[in-house]
Nucleic acid binder design. Structure first.
Lengths: 192, 192, 192, 192
DNA sequence: TATGAATGAGCTTTCATTCAT
DNA sequence: GATGAATGAAAGCTCATTCAT
């Protein structure tokens, strides 16, 4: 069955990510991926130079999604609504994409993946810069005088919620905590 | 060379943790561990039923350290100083034990380790309960009317700082952010 | 060197059976099998899921040979000649295939192989039924009024000869005893 | 706990035989044997030079039992009762000692055990000779003119019954067939 | 006698990758 | 493009045996 190269690549990536999420990168064999994608092993190596390249492509796809978030933040004038966009994105990533998020986090944290991760991030470094600018603008618009200084703490709160939920979803009331978080940062305007 | 059982176990664990931190659990072979511990492969299996059991022992050791933290919190009357204890512990874990912390986090997050992690945590479940009680007491003493409700957000901030530092130490000014964090929570007394 | 899948499977089985006969299943390593078949170790696992599966295939091949015997019995009208067919088969199995027979017997008798043997026999259970029917018909045609009741004793005699020969070929005059056995069962017509 | 050497040896052998019967010789480790016998591994090697020596001792014990059978046959004047003694012994060996019998047969048949078996039988070769004399005498007394010529067929019947029962106890009505066998050989007096 | 720490060779199995077809 | 046969290295684990204590 002839398909376009892009279609093929997508099929392989779709199969791979499902298996990586479930069993981890190391515990997933190329054989399993190709079986799930219903292609031969040889063909997978036609499209990807190695198993690592598959992971690389996966990370790339994920990072590309950040651009969309940045764009949406740029387009929204209201600071409150921008804060809500960020929170909604977090909730969606972490609740709908629970397994994927766990997989990405562990991939990024494992030192043996360092080179790979560096490689993936080098593709478009301005990506992170743009998002950060949006976050700073948000904090400034929310009333923080030194928004840049506030950013790390803001991010820590965000990532911390995500992390604790992923660690034990049943034990962490993510939606509720997220609402508290929004409240805390919305009120900031009148303070500081 | 004959050694006592405890000594040997420790040597193996010491070698294992160093390698796990550096290359990850999967990428570390039992052969490498025993080479580093300067013993034969067979002997490792004399002391640990499997490679997984080595990891289990390692996690157990780490969790046991929590008890010490809880004890120190209990013993300290001043809320401000208790907050500082928590922060210092965090800084120490994450700066001095950067690699180890990364290793533990990824171990806990990877779904393929679920059973293992469950097993390790079952050993002493009251451990987490006690620490949580201390954290709630701290927040209450810091002036939070509903300390229990505040806990998740507090923890999110703490874990988020640790996480962002581990993700990219050079890009996250941990000490500085931690200071901000302390400030924010110390002031709470007069608010809410 | 590329070969067809069937060819390869046969090569592996041929090598395996020779080694199993000589040294036993447990004492034969997959490495030895693949060395003898002049292929890599990995390839054996491409064709057989496990070492056990190789044994399973071997047993299957052997059991399939029973069908041929049943067919030949069915086709022969004379009872005397049918008795001779059975005896000839026994002599052939046990004299030409001495080692193989010893290997099969021990494989079937060892309790640790129980599951394997059950699995191998489940493939075609009617096989044994058909052969048994032929044996009963033979005994009936040889003059036994209750052929079904006679069958176990008949079989015991047959198997006993085989067994004693295999136990110590030099000490058991199989051909001669087989001739006595034939004589005894041929005369039955006039008796009982 | 100090015990006599003989007691110790017996304990080890008892443990070993139970495990060998269940899992086979190869699949039983010395560790398992010593655990079952509640002694240390070192001690087992104090009493037996090797794992093979344990098997050797086991076979020796079994062969020694033959002497008792021979003695009982010698002491009994009635041929019918002697036949019954043989049959009873067979039934007992094979029904009560089903697993053990299976283990012994496979041990004797496996070519890799040849040297071991030879060694075990060399201890007292006259043992087999004596029993054989008794069997010949029995057949003669039962009315066979050429008892010596009849012996192989007689033995084949005996061993065949044992073998078929061990192969599949549920499918072979041993007691009933044994009764038929006795009948057949008892009547011989008037024939031939 | 008695222990169990220690070894080292060997086992089955997996797997990323290559390549003839 | 597409297949799957083929490789070889390495992994986790077992085990008979030895030996210091």
């Amino acid at each position: 069955m002839r398909r376009s190269a892009d279609e093929r690549r997508s099929e392989i990536l779709r199969a791979a990510v499902a298996l990586f999420e479930q069993n981890g990168f190391d515990a997933t064999s190329v054989e399993e991926i190709t079986a799930k994608a219903k292609i031969s092993k040889g063909l997978a190596y036609h499209y990807f130079k190695s198993k690592d390249e598959i992971l690389l492509a996966l990370i790339g796809l994920r990072l590309a999604e950040l651009d969309d978030l940045t764009r949406r933040l740029r387009a929204e004038p209201s600071a409150e609504r921008r804060l809500q966009i960020l929170i909604d994105q977090l909730l969606d990533d972490v609740i709908s994409g629970e397994k994927r998020q766990r997989f990405l986090i562990t991939t990024f944290l494992q030192p043996q993946n360092n080179k790979l991760v560096q490689k993936a991030m080098k593709v478009s470094p301005e990506r992170f810069e743009s998002l950060q600018q949006e976050e700073i603008r948000l904090l400034a618009d929310l009333g923080f005088k030194d928004a840049e200084a506030e950013l790390p703490l803001f991010r820590a709160g965000m990532q911390g919620m995500a992390f604790l939920y992923l660690l034990n979803p049943a034990a962490f009331p993510l939606r509720q905590v997220a609402a508290q978080f929004v409240l805390k940062y919305s009120k900031k305007q009148e303070q500081t």
